[in-house]
Nucleic acid binder design. Structure first.
Lengths: 369, 369
DNA sequence: CTGAAAGCGCTAACAT
DNA sequence: ATGTTAGCGCTTTCAG
């Protein structure tokens, strides 16, 4: 009972070397495909490796080389199709370059993000792609950047940090979309977002998300350009779960000062907003117009199909990965690819009626006539 | 120019030990929180670590312990919301237990899956969760299992492999759904799936996906139980891209033998099928009934809202991770949690009219009257 | 081209 | 409780 009862241990270079009757160093060279190896040795080593079904221990390899061929991706929520698509873009580009992806969700929570970044760094990822939960509070990311670890931001900028960022020009597309709404006669335009803030929105509120800040800035500009007052009271943040979104929707659609158009900040919010509108018995776009960010396939299936702001999410993910890999390989920054969102006009935005009266609503919401 | 120009190297236990004036071993013990360490030493070490902002090298740690605290997840396509949700369940459960997730997409390609598994093994993941592209051709997975590496299957079974599997009983729910359709008078029920096969479907076709095989089996049983012939000609596999799905939908809805109900095998297919139905000018459920797998939020937004088969995807992902972790910790298999899908009857299934005549169709498809 | 030996940063005996 | 000494599996000098 010798040699047979031995617990199965992974076969190592040493084993292969022995079998091929060469030194460990030579075997390693042949296996790792580096250094100088004679054809004869290489053949014997490879054959032995095959016979023993040798597999390299990438951990050990990483220890020496300092490269793990792994990149860390930190997003808010992979369950959100937006990030699902972006992640697909990232993983595809990464795989093509020989990298793997470790994925971490943060639920847009800064503490979780700090922790995620730390763990990924401890695991010695070669670089990080982060959709920062906050563009204001970025100390942990500043440290990563300063330490020299390749880092790329996705979707949101990192505030003052000079980190390569892949995102669309939100202010611009928001301006365009708002102009479109304004052109259709809308003056009371609501904007609903899950972004968490300490207090209700005001003009001087500092927003954690550069993305949302830019969108609001775009809206404001559009109103200003037309000499119209920006309806700050219709900017509703902190729209947490489905219920909260529904009640917010009811609120902005109620009363004499109600909104005639609603902009949903993302696809998840959109679902609840549309549902709430349907529950109110209002019809799109006759009673209320609707516009949302992200062009998900299902937006073409509703009646009417929804007008959306389409972002090249997959390509942005892929671009982020490519930019990161370029950094990891020590290449100079490429000229930042410009990603532009486009307004896809389908059927959910209508012309506003002369008077703002909406008799239906008064009834439903139980308002006094 | 000494000591100052030195390139910033990661600080190691040795550095901390020196700063705390203790041996490397003691520092390591204090840092790693194992072995016996006096309070005094622990304090000094921790303080030194803090001061030097020491961070452990998890790679090195893994080399010794043999545990990477990382699990590999191999799915068809993270872009598919089904896997997005499942992945969220996995990552949540993993994080809670102190594990990270490396994610790989296979596009349901077996070769890609083989490669993915190999790479993850090389990276020494502690375990694997795989949604096998094929339940038939599973040699690579058999090897993983035999090598003793913890492995769990998600969604699809591994054929003859005795591997813990988290999935719903597809045959059962398919039977129920089909009975429901049958009860509404449907006899010509089409089933559309992206599953790739070499030849058109026949009763004896061996299907790569246990999931699809079970669904078809469930349908067949329902027909048989009612003494009705199972309409094999309406089983349409290989529905690749959106265009192909559209043309298949047109096909099954055309001609004298057309389908009166269509079952979409997943949410992605559903989108194209519904679009195709709308393009044909047919209305759901008056002209054709519709049923799909997966209860995505948007299915409540269409008119009519869609009747779906809901699966507890998030919970299944979480359960898969928990089962895997249990294996990794050497615990015995828990009794397999039973996951059941439910038929959510909304508005897309209607009663079939007496005659199968569908005049509208003849016109649209240019069929001779 | 080849081999011996020295690490990578950490944990794990083994002493003391 | 603490320190010393080996490794983990691989890459990488450095001789030859």
């Amino acid at each position: 009972m010798n040699g047979e009862g031995a617990r199965r241990r992974d076969v190592t270079v040493a084993d292969v070397a022995k079998a091929a009757q060469v030194s460990k160093a030579q075997a390693a060279r042949a296996l790792g495909n580096y250094g100088a190896v004679s054809d004869d040795v290489r053949e014997r080593v490879l054959a032995a490796a095959e016979a023993l079904s040798y597999r390299p221990n990438e951990l050990a390899r990483s220890m020496n080389t300092g490269k793990s061929h792994t990149i860390g991706v930190v997003v808010g929520d992979i369950e959100n199709p937006h990030f699902g698509l972006a992640t697909r873009g990232i993983t595809d580009a990464a795989k093509k370059a020989g990298y793997n992806v470790i994925l971490v969700n943060t639920d847009e929570d800064r503490a979780a993000e700090v922790e995620a970044v730390r763990v990924l760094l401890d695991k010695r990822v070669d670089g990080l792609i982060v959709a920062p939960a906050s563009s204001v509070d970025t100390e942990h990311l500043r440290q990563v950047h300063q330490s020299g670890r390749p880092l790329v931001f996705l979707d949101r900028s990192g505030g003052t940090l000079d980190v390569e960022t892949v995102a669309v020009d939100m202010a611009k597309i928001s301006l365009q979309a708002t102009q479109y709404l304004l052109g259709a006669g809308h003056r009371r335009i609501a904007f609903i977002s899950t972004l968490r803030t300490d207090a209700p929105y005001r003009a001087d509120t500092v927003l954690d998300s550069s993305q949302i800040a830019d969108r609001l800035e775009g809206m404001r500009q559009a109103f200003l350009a037309d000499g119209l007052p920006f309806p700050e009271d219709l900017v509703r943040l902190n729209a947490g779960d489905a219920d909260s979104i529904r009640s917010i929707t009811r609120e902005v659609l109620r009363g004499p000062e109600q909104a005639t158009a609603v902009v949903a900040s993302d696809g998840l919010i959109a679902l609840s907003v549309v549902e709430a509108i349907q529950e109110l018995g209002l019809s799109i776009p006759a009673d209320v117009s609707f516009l949302m960010y992200d062009d998900f396939p299902w937006t073409r299936l509703t009646s009417p199909p929804l007008t959306v702001i389409a972002q090249p999410v997959y390509n942005m993910g892929a671009a982020a990965a490519k930019a990161l890999i370029r950094q990891m390989e020590g290449l100079p920054r490429a000229a930042p690819a410009q990603f532009t969102a486009t307004l896809v006009r389908r059927g959910s935005v209508g012309t506003v009626r002369a008077a703002a009266a909406a008799p239906k609503l008064g009834q439903l919401a139980g308002e006094p006539a």
